[in-house]
Nucleic acid binder design. Structure first.
Length: 261
DNA sequence: AGCACA
């Protein structure tokens, strides 16, 4: 609700309070649209890693790209480029230490601006061709197509808009804040707005496609809702991203959130 | 540990 604190105070402890939000070990780089994540599980294949990162982080806002590499120097690290720096800040704060493939994520702001952003800025200078006389800005207004089309495998949800999809760039800046803090991740999902004729079997067919699926629970006395459990929060998050908005009937887009703890 | 632009 009140995210007015922001992260502007890069240095902690304003006013002698024992504010140990970020102790001295946190470098506290200036905010950036891109977050840098390390301590990632290096055994995870790059493709899956990027997909899972996208799934886990897209709750904080539009993600323009997820980058990860398998070269030695870059193992266990990834960059998530958000459309909005406030999304990056929220992601950094809320997902710090999040258990991801058995390892707590370590998140910082990226040290430098991502190329994708620089290209949108017009400040992009290709580093491969570093000839000093090549200062002419090649003003090609090419649209960079960065649609992250992560088909979770299996049914594709017809979610027209998940969560915070409305293009923040088109909203007045003051209003473009995140709607509110998302519910804390939970391995159990809460599904709402189901058509009354929905059966547990129908839900199982949908949700069991996502890894880690354990079970569906429906509440007889309360039609239209269900609980779906996964092995861990990451798996449930992937399923949520995949199925939120899925329409069993045209007038019933599924509403999938984390269950309350 | 390691900050890239597959």
């Amino acid at each position: 609700m009140e995210n007015a604190m922001g992260v502007a105070g890069a240095g902690a402890g304003a006013g002698g309070g024992a504010v140990t939000t970020t102790s001295a070990d946190a470098p506290s780089l200036p905010p950036n649209m891109t977050i840098y994540i390390n301590n990632l599980n290096e055994k995870i294949k790059i493709d899956e890693l990027k997909k899972s990162l996208n799934a886990v982080f897209s709750q904080f806002g539009k993600i323009l790209e997820v980058l990860a590499f398998k070269t030695f120097k870059h193992k266990g690290q990834a960059w998530v480029i958000f459309e909005d720096v406030s999304s990056a800040s929220e992601a950094l704060k809320r997902m710090q230490g999040f258990p991801f493939y058995e390892k707590p994520m370590r998140i910082q702001y990226a040290k430098t601006k991502s190329d994708l952003i620089a290209k949108a800025d017009g400040t992009f200078v290709p580093r491969e061709r570093r000839k000093k006389h090549d200062e002419r800005a090649d003003r090609k207004k090419r649209e960079h197509h960065h649609d992250n089309n992560y088909s979770g495998g299996g049914l594709s949800a017809t979610h027209g808009a998940y969560g915070v999809t409305p293009p923040l760039s088109q909203l007045p800046l003051g209003v473009a804040k995140l709607p509110e803090a998302p519910a804390p991740p939970n391995s159990i999902l809460f599904v709402q707005n189901l058509p009354t004729e929905t059966t547990p079997m129908m839900l199982q067919m949908l949700f069991c496609q996502y890894p880690g699926f354990k079970e569906v629970r429906m509440v007889e006395t309360k039609p239209g809702i269900a609980f779906v459990e996964y092995g861990d929060e990451m798996q449930s998050t992937v399923a949520m991203q995949g199925l939120h908005g899925f329409k069993i009937t045209p007038q019933n887009p599924m509403h999938v959130t984390y269950a309350k703890k």
